[in-house]
Write a protein that binds this DNA or RNA. Structure first.
Length: 718
RNA sequence: UGGGGUGUAGGCUAGCGGUAGGCCCCAGGUUUUUGGUACCUGUCAUCGUAGGUUCGAAUCCUACCACCCCAGCCA
């Protein structure tokens, strides 16, 4: 219902994303509280099965359940759903507890185990038997499966379905006592063998399992099934909202059936389902993660490439980043696959705030400052947080021989290269300006050393005469350098969805997901770092001291995530410019776009960077005369041009050349080159019916290509 | 060929009858002793499709289509 206030403004609509929007579960809770259900109480639970380590998908559920409790002043229990002794272990309950508290959530004194309720479950089962709603089926597994039917054929009743209550009670007692062997009998709920919902075709409640349970030992040899147990666990604990993932939607009628057919318990919980998290470039099922661990594809559950909480912790992720991520992805019911870039964004955001900056060189190249006295050294002040100098500084030693990043040097510098190259001056961060004078190579022609000179007046890295030095590089003094091992982690899989398509997902493991670099060097202030410490290696990325393998004499750093690298982007575009002569829109080379590229583009791609003359000939270039030119409002780069190309009408063209022609009137009368057969493009200001060729790039040196001479509008340009 | 769900830009997500908003990605720019950060700007959606109701539909109705889940003595 829409309501309007006296000024006519809608009052029930979300204002510009101010209030965090509510997801459907919060709406359900709001409704329940408004109607007084559960006395307004909110009680949730996080119910992991202790048969594996928690992963980022569980984090979503943890944040949801604990978050809801916090938001509504309720409680959230940690409950181990340990109803299957054959897969569960104490190791897992330890790790789960560690992960939940590390994420920042507190279950206080509410740690529960389903196994604590085993006696109660048995009572409930007996109750159901007495009501004629459960029976012992002595069929074997195979017979039960066959009689269950399938989607198109109803199931058939078991021959044991109509045993008397007495017989059932007796049999159930013997199941419990261990008189019956595994697989010879189960307790089943008597519901409906013809139900279109397979879950309702007399689901199994108890199976015989003569295995030792990690908590109850050998006390039991029958164990309850999930559907039978879960609702009761919730009810016993007074849970109000029992949140689980979508695949349990089909089980909800069962959840309700079990609750409705026994005497009322402490509360009547409601099951609500949401979509589990999927992340690009990884897998999320416990089974597959186990396979990776057991198959030796990773070093363990806490391998920093794993999407497990423990792996991410070791990798350097922060609890806050993970919580933020979970907030951003939202809660809904549609299947989705979240871009791992969003996760990376969340860590960068937190780490940018919290990680002190230090200098490290991953792939060292020696640089000798020829006019710096041998044997001398000086120590420069360097801020841990350059954007907040108050947050502390350290001293960084400088001397005649230093290491720089090999990647920061190019013998043949491309355009826009601001870093080391012959003859180019570069700033050494916090230290000084140096100029590369000479390159020393070995027999194989590899660069082994740079010979430079420095400007003593630039101490601290300042420019004494105000000369522009665009590039700043990180470095480490050779004499003072600490050796370090650096592990350059990358995505575990090289395919967005490793599960899609044919073939085993393991075939898509990223061969380069772990790059171990032994010969890195770091500044001496890092000598005392402790396991888990996080830093930013300036200009490179965020790193974390490995909690297992790092030691004072042997530092090991794990790459959490790289810094954003806009040089990589520039370089990509440069390559594209040289191969495609800068025509058309740049920067749309997302993987999808490539696949959907039209035939011509594909043809061009097939022959590498070159196109055939035939392809080029398809471009219809015409002489055009600009008849009018004006600024486009709300578009600071565009000019609207009306161009005559001899068609008897003017073409409207929007061109991004405003920076070069602040007074567009000067363009009127220019003879220019127009791409005449470009597919018209609908822009918010109107239709753009072609393109005017221009030279230069960026804002500097931009100019439309024009002709002099006796050319007529519409003349072909070749 | 049963049942249960879900469909809003490249990816997430809001919208709850008044004509699509946010975040990520991408592109460009300003500031910068990190090609980082911050800030600004921009591109991209006839809301799965087709009908209908209505002055008005992403929102209501109908039909269709696509995708996901279900035949463990797993959870």
């Amino acid at each position: 219902m829409s309501t309007k206030n006296p000024t006519g403004e809608r009052t029930d609509k979300n204002t510009k994303g101010e209030e965090p929007r509510k997801h459907f579960i919060e709406e359900i809770i709001d409704r329940d509280r408004a109607s007084g259900k559960h006395g307004g109480r909110v009680a949730t639970r996080f119910p992991p099965e202790p048969n594996g380590y928690l992963h980022i998908g569980h984090a979503k559920s943890i944040c949801l359940n604990f978050g809801l409790a916090a938001k509504y002043g309720g409680t959230c229990n940690l409950r181990f759903d340990d109803t299957n002794p054959s897969t569960e272990e104490m190791e897992y309950v330890e790790s789960i507890q560690k992960d939940v508290s590390w994420l920042g959530f507190d279950w206080e004194d509410r740690r529960f185990f389903a196994s604590d309720y085993f006696e109660k479950f048995f009572e409930l089962a007996v109750d159901l038997v007495k009501k004629g709603l459960a029976y012992v089926d002595s069929s074997d597994m195979d017979a039960i499966r066959k009689k269950r039917g399938d989607y198109n054929t109803p199931g058939q009743k078991s021959p044991y379905r109509d045993r008397s209550v007495e017989e059932n009670l007796d049999l159930l007692g013997r199941m419990r006592a261990g008189d019956l062997e595994e697989g010879t009998a189960v307790l089943r709920a008597k519901i409906d063998m013809e139900s279109p919902n397979m879950n309702l075709r007399d689901p199994i409640m108890y199976r015989i399992r003569k295995a030792s349970h990690h908590r109850t030992g050998d006390k039991w040899c029958i164990y309850p099934m999930y559907d039978f147990a879960h609702g009761y666990e919730d009810a016993i604990e007074g849970i109000t909202h029992s949140i689980c993932t979508l695949e349990f939607e089909n089980h909800r009628p069962l959840y309700d059936w079990f609750l409705d057919n026994v005497a009322p318990l402490a509360s009547r919980p409601q099951q609500i389902e949401f979509a589990r998290l999927n992340l690009t470039y990884t897998v999320m099922s416990k089974r597959k993660l186990l396979e990776l661990v057991q198959g030796g594809d990773v070093s363990g559950w806490d391998d920093p490439r794993m999407p497990t909480i423990s792996g991410m912790r070791r990798r350097g992720y922060t609890p806050k980043a993970i919580r933020d991520f979970c907030d951003r992805i939202g809660v809904a019911k549609r299947d989705s696959m979240v871009d791992v870039a969003l996760l990376e964004h969340a860590v960068r955001e937190d780490l940018n705030e919290t990680s002190p900056r230090v200098m490290a060189v991953i792939d060292p190249l020696k640089l000798v400052i020829e006019n710096y006295p041998e044997g001398e050294e000086e120590w420069f002040d360097a801020a841990y947080f350059p954007d907040a100098p108050g947050r502390g500084t350290r001293k960084v030693p400088f001397s005649r021989e230093i290491y720089i990043e090999r990647d920061d040097f190019r013998e043949d510098a491309p355009r826009k290269w601001h870093r080391f190259a012959p003859g180019q001056e570069v700033r050494l961060r916090y230290a000084c300006l140096v100029k590369c004078e000479r390159v020393v190579k070995n027999d194989k022609g590899e660069v082994v050393e740079l010979r430079c000179t420095w400007d003593p007046k630039s101490r601290g890295g300042t420019s004494p005469d105000g000369r522009k030095v665009k590039g700043t590089s990180h470095w480490v003094s050779a004499r003072h350098a600490l050796k370090a091992e650096v592990r350059q982690y990358d995505r575990l899989f090289d395919k967005e969805n490793p599960l899609a398509g044919e073939g085993d997902y393991k075939g898509h493991l990223n061969k380069d997901s772990l790059g171990v670099i032994e010969g890195a060097v770091v500044e001496p202030s890092l000598a005392q770092v402790k396991a888990g410490d996080r830093v930013q290696f300036e200009r490179i990325g965020y790193y974390c001291v490995d909690s297992e393998d790092s030691a004072p004499g042997h530092l090991v750093f794990n790459r959490t995530v790289t810094l954003k690298d806009s040089w990589a982007r520039i370089e990509r575009n440069l390559e594209k410019d040289t191969s495609a002569s800068g025509s058309g829109k740049r920067g749309q080379n997302r993987p999808k776009a490539k696949a959907e590229g039209n035939a011509e583009e594909n043809a061009a791609e097939e022959s590498g960077d070159q196109i055939t003359i035939g392809t080029f000939a398809k471009v219809d270039l015409r002489v055009g005369i600009i008849r009018s030119a004006e600024l486009v409002e709300k578009a600071d780069k565009l000019l609207k041009l009306m161009v005559d190309i001899g068609e008897g009408r003017l073409r409207q063209v929007f061109a991004g050349i405003r920076s070069a022609y602040p007074e567009p009137a000067s363009l009127v009368g220019e003879k220019v080159i127009v791409v005449a057969n470009l597919k018209p493009r609908q822009m918010r200001f109107g239709l753009s019916e072609g393109m005017v060729l221009a030279g230069g790039g960026g804002t500097e040196r931009l100019c439309v290509a024009s002709f002099d001479g006796e050319l007529e509008p519409g003349d072909k340009v070749s």
